[in-house]
Amino acid sequence: MFDPHTSPITIHYRPRNRNTYITITHNGEVCVRSPIKDEKRLRLILRDRESWIRSKLSAIAASPLAHHTLGETIRFRGECIPITQLPHLCETLQRAKNSIDIEKYYTNFYKNEAILTLPSRLAHYERKMGLHPKEIRFKKMRRRWGSCSSEGVVTLNTMMMQLCYEHIDYIIVHELAHLRHMNHSREFHALVRTILHNERELRRELKQVRIG
C-alpha cells in the first residue's frame, strides 16, 4: 500500500517547471517532476494526492498488462498472454541464451506484427481524415509512441503492438492530425475528437502506459 511518507518515489528535479507533476508509470512507479528540491516538501504534496495515487496504483494492479514475466508472457494487443499462445514466437525463444536475446526476439516480433497490422489501419484513417503522409516508417522508439515530421513523414513505434486497438488507433489518428496541425492546439485536439470521440480519455490512459 502506498505511504506518502515512506514509499519509494523517483524525483526528477526540474528548475524550469512552475508546478510539481506526479505520474504513475505502467509498472507502478511513482515519479515526481518538480522545481522543489526538498524531499520532505514533496512528501507533503504526495500526502495531499494520496487518494489519487492509490486509485491509480489499484487500477494498474488490476490491469491485464500488470503481471508480466519476460520469456513466459508477452504484452500483446492490450493483454498479457503466455507465449505458448504464439507458437512461432515460442519456437524462436527456444534459441535465446539470455534475457538480452529474449528482448531482441520480442522486439522483432512487435516489428513484424506492426508491419502486418498497421498499414490497413493507417489506410482506413487516411481515407476517413483525408490526410496522407508522404512516407510511413516503423521503428522501435523509447520515448514516443509516434511522430510526424514537418516533411509529412509519420513514424510509428513498433512497441505499440503491446497496446489494445483503441490505443493503437488513437496514436495513428494523433499522428495523422499533425499533418494538418503541427502542434497540440485546441484545433488539433478538436480534429482528433471528430474521429475518436473519447479522445480525452484515450490520451489520459496512454499517459499512464510505459513504453517497453
Rank of each mutant, 00 (worst) to 15 (best):
R193A: 15
E103Q: 12
N98C: 02
I22V: 15
Y21P: 02
L46A: 04
K207V: 14
R33C: 08
P87Q: 05
S55D: 09
R137T: 07
I136E: 12
K207S: 13
Q208F: 06
R193D: 09
H181A: 02
E50F: 00
R127F: 04
A114C: 08
D38I: 03
M1C: 00
F76S: 02
E166D: 15
E135T: 13
E151V: 08
E103L: 08
M129K: 12
E79V: 08
G130D: 08
S149W: 01
Y110K: 09
R210T: 08
G152A: 14
F138W: 10
P8L: 03
L46S: 06
T10H: 08
K56D: 01
D48H: 13
C148N: 13
R14D: 01
R200W: 02
R14C: 00
D38E: 12
S7R: 03
I24F: 01
Y110C: 01
Y105F: 11
Y170N: 12
G146R: 02
L93R: 12
M160S: 03
T20S: 14
T155I: 07
E39Y: 13
E135M: 07
T73Q: 05
I100D: 04
E79Y: 08
P87I: 15
P64I: 04
P4G: 07
T20L: 13
A62G: 15
T25W: 15
R127T: 04
V209R: 07
I100F: 04
A59H: 01
Y110G: 05
I136K: 14
R54V: 00
T117F: 09
T69M: 12
R43W: 03
N17E: 04
G212Q: 01
I195H: 15
Y110W: 12
E50H: 01
L156A: 00
I172T: 04
E126R: 15
R144I: 10
H189F: 15
N183I: 03
L86C: 13
A123N: 14
L65Q: 12
C80A: 05
S7T: 03
H174Q: 06
A61V: 07
R14A: 03
T107L: 08
L179Q: 02
R121T: 00
V192E: 06
N112H: 10
